[in-house]
Structures are given as C-alpha cells and as structure tokens.
Computed example of a mutant assay.
Amino acid sequence: MAVALDWINTMCYDFYGSWDTTATSEHATLHNPWSNISTSYGLQSWIAVGVPTVKVAMGMLLFGRTWRLNDRTSMAWGPWEKGGVFIYAKVVGFNRNNSSTMS
C-alpha cells in the first residue's frame, strides 16, 4: 500500500465508547502497556510492516466522550451531553470550572 499511496490517515480514537457496554476505558489512548488497543501500538504496527513514517498521519480527535455513571461518588465522574460527545471548547471549560485533573 505504501507504494501506491501518498499518505495513510489513521483513526487514533474511538477505541472504546458507549457502543461497548462490556468495558470502560479511554477512547483515545496514546499508549497502553497492557493492551494492543492504543495509538502507539497501531502506528508502530504500520511502521513494522514497512510503511515509511513520513507516510503515516496520526488522526487526532478534538472532542471528548461523555458518560453517565450511576454513582457520582465514584472516582470518575463527568458531564453528560446528548449524543455522548463533548466538543473541545467544552472540555476545556469543564476542566477549568471544576478544577478537574487527570490521573
């Protein structure tokens, strides 16, 4: 494929989401040492089979996924938006207004 294409766009997000009710995890994991579901694993897989790095484009998201938990006292809590998508500007505002941290 690398010979026939100028570049290869990779979708490096939506690894997990509301469509999968069996697991919860980050929807755009950059690196996950315990799984092959991550951006770094996917990109390294393309490179390992011979695709030149200059032809691999990493697709980044500019939104966050929202969720609703049954218990707000849980360690993870976030806003719910219809459709489950929180645009980037709202993510920044939510974090600023709620002194949010990531761990």
Rank of each mutant, 00 (worst) to 15 (best):
A2S: 05
A4P: 01
D6N: 04
D6I: 04
W7S: 02
I8F: 01
N9E: 02
Y13F: 05
Y13T: 02
D14I: 01
D14C: 02
F15R: 04
Y16Q: 12
Y16F: 09
G17H: 00
G17F: 04
G17T: 08
G17R: 02
S18Q: 12
S18Y: 10
W19R: 15
W19H: 08
D20L: 15
T21A: 15
T22Y: 10
A23C: 15
A23E: 15
T24F: 15
S25I: 14
S25Y: 15
S25G: 14
S25A: 11
E26I: 13
E26V: 15
H27Y: 08
H27M: 15
A28F: 07
T29V: 12
N32Q: 11
P33R: 13
N36L: 13
I37L: 13
S40V: 09
L43R: 02
L43D: 07
L43N: 00
Q44L: 08
Q44P: 04
W46Y: 07
W46S: 03
A48Y: 09
A48M: 04
A48E: 03
V49W: 00
V51E: 00
V51G: 00
P52M: 01
P52D: 00
P52K: 03
V54K: 05
V54H: 06
K55E: 00
M58E: 06
G59K: 00
G59F: 02
M60R: 10
L61Q: 09
F63H: 04
G64A: 06
G64M: 00
R65Y: 02
R65M: 07
R65G: 12
T66S: 01
W67A: 08
W67G: 04
W67L: 10
R68T: 11
R68C: 08
N70M: 10
N70C: 13
D71M: 05
R72F: 09
R72P: 09
R72D: 13
T73P: 05
S74F: 10
S74M: 15
S74N: 08
M75Q: 12
M75L: 14
A76K: 13
W77M: 07
G78K: 01
G78H: 02
P79L: 06
P79C: 04
W80D: 11
W80A: 10
W80E: 11
W80G: 09
E81D: 12
E81Q: 09
K82A: 07
K82H: 13
I87N: 13
Y88P: 05
A89W: 12
K90V: 10
V92A: 12
G93R: 13
N95Q: 15
N95A: 15
N95E: 09
R96Y: 11
R96F: 10
N97Q: 14
N98M: 14
N98C: 13
N98E: 07
S99P: 12
S99R: 09
S100I: 06
S100G: 11
S100C: 14
T101Y: 07
T101F: 11
T101A: 13
M102W: 07
S103Y: 09
S103D: 15
S103I: 11
